[in-house]
């Protein structure tokens, strides 16, 4: 088990390194002169500078060194917790992240929790209901949930709950109230996916012979569903939760823009627009780390939920 864990952590580190390196390569090797991009990001025009100034700027950004050397220098910095300087904000990237990350974590965290409760709850009720019209209506709901675009859903919620009813603030990032609408907006697509997959799971599990065994014991429908169907139907959900976290990160970019929240999502949007390369690199690294971490947790949870999966070799 501990050997398995070490292996998985090793894998996770490899994925992180890969994500960082590929992003670096893309950003630095794409057509275009990194120096002019960086200078214009910092508000200067390369054409207006003398060759001496350009050489100075090159040295300042470390561009006078070879590609590999630059890369190793950057990586060395990352290993020591130094993500470099932001070009546009003129502050250390770590400081910017430390300021923005909590807002986004709160948003993403509450969205994940909300989507799990919403999605599982919807599928559970849909599986329990026996009145056919309601069952069909509930079963169709997820399709609606992920076909409605996030930005439109956000605007709709603002219109109804902020402007008409006045229950929650439309924008901003202070306090719990401002978290509700963005979290709901972000949760809806994920919840729809969870509900869809869990409904399929229930449909499959209801046909399993052990469900007949449970009914033959004299259990009620509710008891059979809670004790025997749910856990078996929910197994595919676990993999999905791991994957959806990635979507939550990209969803946060949209949602934070709509609701004018000061989070990492908006930060990365601005950084990409202004080509603030160190900042983009850092955000990619952080979100890759979050993704890898969640998937590691999911893998470790599997044997807890499904006793048939043990991390040991098997006899064929």
């Amino acid at each position: 088990m501990s050997r398995y864990l070490l292996g998985r952590i090793g894998q996770a580190l490899l994925v992180l390194w890969g994500a960082y390196s590929i992003t670096y390569l893309i950003l630095y090797l794409l057509p275009g002169d990194p120096l002019s991009i960086m200078l214009s990001a910092a508000g200067m025009e390369i054409d207006a500078m003398s060759p001496a100034d350009i050489a100075k700027a090159k040295a300042y950004y470390g561009l006078d060194r070879g590609l590999l050397e630059q890369y190793l220098h950057l990586l060395w910095g990352v290993l020591h917790g130094d993500l470099g300087q932001s070009l546009t904000l003129a502050r250390p990237v770590t400081a910017v992240l430390a300021e923005r990350l909590p807002t986004t974590l709160a948003l993403a965290g509450s969205a994940i929790v909300l989507s799990l409760f919403g999605g599982v709850g919807l599928a559970y009720v849909a599986a329990y209901v026996r009145w056919q019209p309601l069952k069909v209506a509930l079963a169709r709901l997820p399709a609606l949930g992920f076909s409605v675009p996030v930005f439109w859903m956000g605007l709709l919620l603002i219109q109804v709950f902020a402007f008409t009813l006045g229950w929650f603030p439309a924008t901003g990032s202070d306090g719990i109230e401002s978290l509700v609408l963005p979290a709901v907006t972000l949760a809806i697509p994920s919840a729809a996916v969870y509900a869809q997959v869990l409904q399929r799971g229930f449909a499959g599990v209801w046909r399993e012979p052990y469900i007949v065994t449970a009914f033959a014991k004299g259990l009620s429908r509710g008891q059979v569903q809670a004790r025997h169907a749910l856990r078996n139907a929910a197994l595919p959900l676990l993999t999905l939760v791991g994957l959806q976290v990635g979507n939550t990160v990209s969803g946060a970019v949209l949602v934070e823009t709509i609701f004018a929240r000061n989070g990492v999502g908006r930060l990365v949007q601005e950084a990409v627009l202004r080509q603030d390369i160190p900042l983009v690199l850092a955000v990619v690294a952080v979100s890759a780390a979050a993704f890898v971490l969640v998937n590691l947790v999911v893998d470790l949870l599997y044997p807890v939920l499904d006793p048939r999966i043990a991390h040991t070799a098997k006899v064929p």
Binding site: E208, V212, T213, A216, K217, G218, L305
Partner: peptide, 28 residues
Amino acid sequence: SERTWRAVRGRTLALVPQDPMVSLNPTQ
């Protein structure tokens, strides 16, 4: 009714199902 049936199942009439490999809940 379902309620009457539930009192019969397990207590008056019990089932030994067909395929033991799939007739027990794998996660319990």
